[in-house]
Amino acid sequence: MLPTNYLISLVIHDIILAATCYVTGWCVLRYQVRVNYTRKINHFLLMLIPFVLAWWFPYTPSLATTVTSLVGFVVMTGVFAKPIRDRVPLVATAFAAVDRPEDRPHTLAWILSQAVGAYLVIIVVFSMLRWFDAAELVAIPLLVNGIGDGLAEPIGVRFGRHRYHVPSLAPGRCYTRSYEGSACVWLTSMIVVLGLLPILSWPVFIGLIISIPPVMTLTEAFSPHSWDAPFMYAIGGACIGFVLLITGG
Score class of each variant (00 low, 15 high):
1 M>D: 07
4 T>R: 11
5 N>W: 09
6 Y>S: 10
10 L>H: 09
12 I>N: 05
12 I>M: 07
13 H>A: 00
14 D>K: 05
15 I>K: 01
16 I>W: 05
20 T>K: 00
21 C>F: 08
22 Y>S: 11
26 W>R: 09
30 R>V: 05
31 Y>F: 15
32 Q>T: 12
32 Q>D: 15
33 V>M: 15
33 V>L: 15
38 T>P: 03
39 R>C: 05
41 I>G: 04
42 N>M: 06
42 N>I: 11
42 N>R: 03
47 M>Y: 14
49 I>R: 03
49 I>K: 02
51 F>H: 10
53 L>I: 13
55 W>D: 00
56 W>E: 00
57 F>D: 02
59 Y>A: 04
61 P>Y: 03
62 S>K: 01
63 L>E: 10
65 T>S: 12
73 F>A: 13
74 V>Q: 04
74 V>A: 13
76 M>C: 14
78 G>M: 02
78 G>F: 01
80 F>T: 06
80 F>W: 13
81 A>L: 11
85 R>V: 01
87 R>Y: 04
88 V>P: 11
89 P>S: 12
89 P>D: 09
90 L>R: 06
90 L>H: 09
90 L>W: 15
92 A>N: 15
96 A>I: 05
98 V>S: 09
99 D>Y: 08
109 A>Q: 12
117 G>N: 08
117 G>V: 09
117 G>R: 08
119 Y>G: 11
120 L>P: 09
126 F>R: 07
126 F>T: 12
132 F>D: 00
135 A>Q: 13
136 E>D: 14
136 E>L: 10
137 L>F: 10
138 V>N: 01
139 A>D: 03
139 A>Y: 12
142 L>M: 15
143 L>T: 05
145 N>P: 00
146 G>F: 14
146 G>W: 14
148 G>W: 14
148 G>M: 10
149 D>F: 13
150 G>K: 06
151 L>H: 04
152 A>T: 11
153 E>I: 14
154 P>M: 09
156 G>W: 13
157 V>R: 00
157 V>S: 02
157 V>D: 07
157 V>H: 10
158 R>V: 02
159 F>A: 07
163 R>H: 14
163 R>V: 06
164 Y>V: 07
165 H>L: 05
166 V>C: 08
167 P>F: 13
168 S>I: 08
172 G>F: 08
173 R>S: 14
176 T>L: 02
179 Y>F: 15
182 S>F: 09
183 A>E: 09
184 C>E: 04
184 C>F: 08
187 L>G: 01
187 L>R: 00
192 V>F: 04
192 V>P: 02
193 V>G: 04
195 G>Q: 02
196 L>V: 06
198 P>E: 07
199 I>T: 15
200 L>H: 08
201 S>T: 15
204 V>I: 15
214 P>H: 09
215 V>G: 04
215 V>T: 14
217 T>I: 11
219 T>R: 01
224 P>E: 05
228 D>T: 11
229 A>G: 00
231 F>G: 00
233 Y>K: 04
234 A>F: 15
235 I>Q: 03
237 G>P: 03
239 C>Q: 06
240 I>N: 02
243 V>M: 02
243 V>A: 01
244 L>N: 01
244 L>P: 03
